[in-house]
Design a protein around this nucleic acid. Structure first.
Lengths: 202, 202
DNA sequence: ACAGGAGCTGACCGATCGGTCAGATATCGT
DNA sequence: ACGATATCTGACCGATCGGTCAGCTCCTGT
């Protein structure tokens, strides 16, 4: 693997674990076994390192959303999206963890803005199927909760609690699809009502 | 309000929004309208500011857990816990957000260790009712997801997506209780036998 | 043989970090 | 009136931050 690619992965890992501000170029250089100057030779700036670390995951998520929003909301398309979304979360844990945990303090960074825009498109897609408070909370719990629990699974599964072991990844994937589908199911069974909350559709 | 209490709240807010490392004493002082030296007069160090900011929420959560674990696992006690837990999340958003989003990079800070120990006790309590991967994921999605979606509700509700308005707090509370209960319900319908994890009562 | 670019480095820069310290100001009990 | 105490401040410290720059060592095409 090239030094440049190695630095990208180290930076992504450290940004995810310690945050963007909490990770110094010096530390990235030390882990890679090169000098800080070498890091800045391969990447124009620390921000460029963040940008190139997140870019692949952002482009993948963009593709998923483009494909999903190509047709109107339906239960079948929603279920297909859920599978794709869960796979995305499983394979982009570092990126998702970095964005979820540390993105709010990096709001003026362009690559974070792009990721935020994706969340907005995702919310718009599901908000087209519900207007009730419970529906909105179901969407948030299902997608945000799944992203959170996956991106920080090490924290709860290994570090903190010793009584919960790390399950096989395919079991995690299957369980997550079941739970997310269950959470989102009421949103499209009978879309017109759901709750007695008429309001707040701006 | 005393200067000291004002500083505590400003620090908690800034730590939650920008992270512990991402918040400087200078910034806290500027918001409060005092000098950096004054901040360090009221609090021995930056870490003391973090400690005293999180302490009340930690003590409250400790009380909830002590009360809940005073008796063996049952559906009724679980439901009572859920209500208390949701109320806790609603009233301690800053603290929960700070712990969830930035706690993993502060693992050697004593107050964060205390909070992590609470999560461990919580996980032990619910892991006594399930051993399946799906059960563990249900627990994680329900509690972690609820904590996440509430602590970062501003991000998804106001900043990012303009199509989802901020619902009344009592509706959020009711919806969350329904969803969390629904997620955790299958865990105690048939509890043949739990784990072989005797207590770990510290 | 050698020019030239790729990869890499140490020295250095201004800015900011958390924290220390001596002293200024104000309040209060006596 | 006067010392004691609480509150607050600016000046300063060493460490670390992201970033710049001149120059070093290779390797390769000609």
């Amino acid at each position: 693997m090239s030094t440049r690619e190695e630095l990208r992965l180290i930076a992504l890992t450290e940004f995810s674990n310690s945050g963007y501000i909490g990770t110094s170029l010096q530390r990235i250089a030390e882990i890679a076994g090169v000098s800080k100057s070498s890091v800045l030779y391969h990447f124009a700036s620390k921000e460029a390192l963040l940008d190139e670390g997140l870019a692949p995951a952002i482009e993948r998520m963009q593709g998923i959303l483009d494909r999903t929003k190509g047709a109107p909301f339906s239960a079948a398309r929603r279920d297909a999206f859920i599978v794709e979304f869960v796979d995305f979360l499983l394979e982009s844990r570092l990126e998702v963890n970095l964005f979820l945990n540390h993105g709010q303090s990096l709001e003026d960074v362009p690559v974070i803005d792009r990721a935020n825009a994706l969340v907005g498109r995702l919310a718009d897609y599901f908000s087209s199927a519900t207007t009730s408070t419970e529906g909105v909370m179901r969407f948030g719990m299902a997608l945000g909760g799944a992203a959170f629990i996956l991106s920080s699974r090490n924290k709860f599964g290994e570090d903190v609690s010793t009584s919960i072991a790390e399950p096989p990844v395919d079991e995690v994937r299957a369980a997550l699809v079941v739970i997310v589908t269950e959470l989102l199911a009421p949103l499209t069974l009978s879309t017109p009502k759901a709750h007695s909350t008429p309001s707040t559709q701006e």
